[in-house]
């Protein structure tokens, strides 16, 4: 039954990557638009925490 683990690991990887890409991308867009410098980092942090929350929802709960 190592197949479930394989699936879970790549799902976790995908969630983290898409979290960073989506919210980080929004932050980057805001930075370009408003001529600021800190929205990208903020977006990346929001994305990573959202993704970890999602991982907790999917795999961390009993």
């Amino acid at each position: 039954m190592a197949k479930r683990e394989e699936n879970a690991m790549w799902s976790i990887f995908g969630y983290l990557l898409s979290g960073l890409l989506f919210w980080g991308g929004i932050g980057y867009g805001l930075d370009q638009w408003l001529n600021q410098g800190y929205f990208t980092l903020l977006g990346l942090l929001v994305g990573i925490s959202g993704a970890i929350y999602l991982v907790w929802l999917r795999f961390g709960r009993e």
Binding site: E5, A8, M9, I12, F13, Y15, L16, L17, L20, L21, G24, Y28, T40, L44, I48, A51, I52, V55, W56, F59, G60, R61, E62
Partner: peptide, 28 residues
């Protein structure tokens, strides 16, 4: 197994998050 699995996956997620953070920051 059912007790260990969530813990392992959360730990993996946290470690992987740092790696991906590094990857994104390398490009940004």
């Amino acid at each position: 197994r059912s007790v260990l699995q969530p813990i392992a996956f959360l730990g993996f997620a946290l470690a992987e998050a740092l790696a991906l953070f590094g990857l994104v920051l390398a490009f940004v």
